[in-house]
Design a protein around this nucleic acid. Structure first.
Lengths: 191, 191
DNA sequence: GCCTGATATTTGAAGCTTAAAACAAGCCGC
DNA sequence: GCGGCTTGTTTTAAGCTTCAAATATCAGGC
């Protein structure tokens, strides 16, 4: 069945009643979470859109390319495409195309791994590094400007709360992704 | 992460902007905002990705279509494409294509406005409404599950903090979008 | 050596997304 | 009612993104 991830931390839970019928569940129960999610999404969309717009306007570069370069700048020894894919939380195929274009524009260098002939190791070129540094300076200022409405204490509090949500989100995702402990089942089923 | 790279061998640095001096004077100060932004983005990406995955798996529907239907369900009298575009914070052209596919699949009804022959008024069809209701029930549960790590007080606090950031973000965007001609302001020209 | 399963990447199809230009219709001052 | 500005929508080109299938390589067991 379904594991109930309880969030009660010692507090009295007023009548852990009816999770009976989905069709009858009170919308008011989850309204707070929905509003929270909506606000989170709206805020992120706003910031992301503005960053995208400014990157294009000031540097004629797309946000995904900037993000990819931001990953690479921290890895002077390079990363494989899989690494990048995991870090950026996008699909492998996506990274393939992105890297292709960055190699083409001279920002990224790509070579076959010396230890694994399946893998590609990519690095920033010198031009790529220089270009990214220039962009990063402004990008940092933009973020500070947009997120500047909080004092230090609020900032820390927000960081912590987001961390909490991140943890529960990860738990929810993991719980959902692992419904089968048995992994042979070669007799049929989808795929 | 970032050192004081003194690659600038000219007078690039000496803080020319009075009203932004505060934001530019302490680079170390920006690390907190960057981390905050990164966490915000990561969290949103995680949730969004999982919702997209489940919508596809359970209902064979894409997230943008679900979002559009979520807008329409609140407007029984319909909305114009422009309205939808603003509410969803996506481009007009985007909405055109999205609506096209939703009309095709029978979820949305589209007709020319009676008061403005330029405008299209779109509504959910009965099928669209039914389909959305079914999806919304589960969607709500998913969100509650993922965001369930907070108690009521934390939830409220997070809501408030996000609101604060949203306000400062909007201010930053508005300020940037206004290239005053009457004022001598630096228009971002070459320095 | 040869299977078998896992990992790294690419490819292909479909759809999403944006920016910019084109087009259509409303609005307004004269 | 004629210009000229604004607003609503579509179109186009380019790029992003996912999922699923295909390819290639690796790592062990025999």
């Amino acid at each position: 069945m379904h594991e109930r991830v309880s969030a009660d931390r010692g507090a009295i839970d007023p009548v852990p009643l009816d999770h009976e019928a989905k069709a009858l569940e009170a919308p008011a129960e989850h309204a707070a979470e929905l509003r929270l999610w909506l606000r989170l999404l709206t805020l992120t969309t706003m910031i992301e859109g503005e960053v995208r717009r400014r990157l294009r306007e000031r540097f004629d570069v797309t946000l995904p390319r900037f993000d990819l370069m931001a990953q690479l700048v921290r890895a002077p020894d390079g990363m494989t495409l899989s690494d990048v894919s995991k870090r950026m939380m996008v699909s492998n195929g996506n990274v393939t195309g992105l890297v292709e274009r960055l190699v083409e524009s001279g920002h990224v260098d790509r070579r076959v791994s010396e230890t694994d002939r399946r893998a590609q190791v990519i690095r920033l070129t010198e031009e790529g590094r220089a270009a990214f540094r220039a962009m990063a300076v402004e990008h940092e200022a933009w973020i500070a400007e947009m997120l500047g409405g909080l004092d230090a204490g609020e900032s820390e509090a927000l960081m912590g709360l987001l961390g909490t949500v991140k943890a529960s989100t990860r738990a929810a995702i993991d719980a959902n992704a692992r419904p089968r402990t048995d992994r042979n089942a070669a007799t049929g089923g989808p795929r």
